[in-house]
Nucleic acid binder design. Structure first.
Lengths: 196, 196
DNA sequence: GTATGTATATTCACTAGTCGGTATACTTGA
DNA sequence: TCAAGTATACCGACTAGTGAATATACATAC
């Protein structure tokens, strides 16, 4: 009763999530995922028709948890919308110090699949980023910011830039710099009605 | 006399550059590079001690050409510094429409090597990004912008964000949005002496 | 000028292992 | 009895890297 038997499929996705995020999709074999999930490769291929499908499932499973984390930081922050936006970056800079942190799984996967634009995993990444942008637009709009759609996109660009640059320099100062830039952009659209 | 025989090492790096950029470092075998260069793998290993070294050489070779392209766009643009900065993004959006365009090779390589932070290729990428940031700082400073160092870093973040997001959405609108955000940040630091 | 020594540059053939994916058979629960 | 799920064992293709031999160029010695 209390021992809910974790479904095989979920065990596989959980194992794939840990390995793919930690090492990158290209450096993790299907055998490794099966072993981590505690079953054989044949069983994995019973539940997923290909590695590509498994990669897409991995990213689809990260969509909502990721957005929940960001929105949690946003809501927990005190102050006006400018402070709330900056809080996302502050928290990001904090967790990025953990050696287990390896950037954004969606962006890294898209980078690995740059030569396969239509790949299902890239599409999953695109959906996630759109979802996040839409959520942020709504928050900005609710706080009376001018041109929330444009601003949300600019903030997304700064955030994804911070993710990417961090993988090169490993310097959280870049995340904080992105947070300040985002705050500057929010300020430029607060109080005023339009910018140009 | 006029027939300068292209050195073997350069032929190898040229072949590696084309393949690594087009497919990603993990999807290109050493055999494939050797074949493209028109020699055997054993010869390649005579000139490079490992694939990792070859990857680093590929990125080192892209440092100056990349910066020259950016500075070329900057210098060719007419108008004030705000327009010149935006011109970089406008040109970027243009070339990004070419199907051969696969984002920033430095960022993509760093993403693939996220689990190996000290990798020589990641260091090469870090050097390049620093070089670009330094160049941009100098240009901004020369145009009398306040806090050129901070602004340069913010623009770099927007640019690298645009590179990364483009690989997910394949929508040049994001590059243009990044250009507008960069222009907004430049404007916030023009005419004034400081921002905070 | 021609024989010999030596460093550079290149090739063929190979190792030992990994890759994604599958054919076949077995177990288990309804 | 039968279908869903799992296991063993295997496939052909590919992987980074290497051993041993060889070709080429250019010295120096005679």
């Amino acid at each position: 009763m209390s021992e809910a038997p974790i479904p095989t499929r979920k065990r596989i996705v959980d194992a794939a999530t840990k390995l793919f995020y930690a090492e990158g999709i290209g450096r993790v074999s299907v055998d490794a995922v099966a072993e981590k999930a505690g079953l054989t490769k044949r069983t994995l291929y019973y539940h997923f028709k290909s590695k590509d499908d498994l990669i897409a499932a991995y990213l689809d499973g990260r969509d909502q948890p990721n957005i929940r984390q960001m929105s949690g930081w946003f809501e927990a922050a005190e102050g006006d919308v400018e402070r709330k936006v900056e809080a996302i970056f502050t928290n990001l800079a904090r967790v990025a110090k953990n050696p287990k942190w390896k950037g954004c799984g969606f962006l890294r996967t898209a980078a690995e699949l740059a030569s396969m634009p239509g790949h299902p995993a890239v599409k999953a990444g695109s959906r996630h980023k759109k979802n996040f942008e839409t959520w942020l637009t709504g928050e900005l709009s609710g706080h009376g910011v001018a041109e929330p759609q444009t601003l949300a996109r600019e903030i997304v660009l700064l955030m994804d830039g911070a993710f990417s640059v961090m993988l090169i320099h490993r310097d959280p100062g870049y995340v904080e710099a992105a947070g300040h830039a985002a705050a500057t952009l929010v300020r430029a659209r607060s109080g005023r009605k339009t910018g140009s």
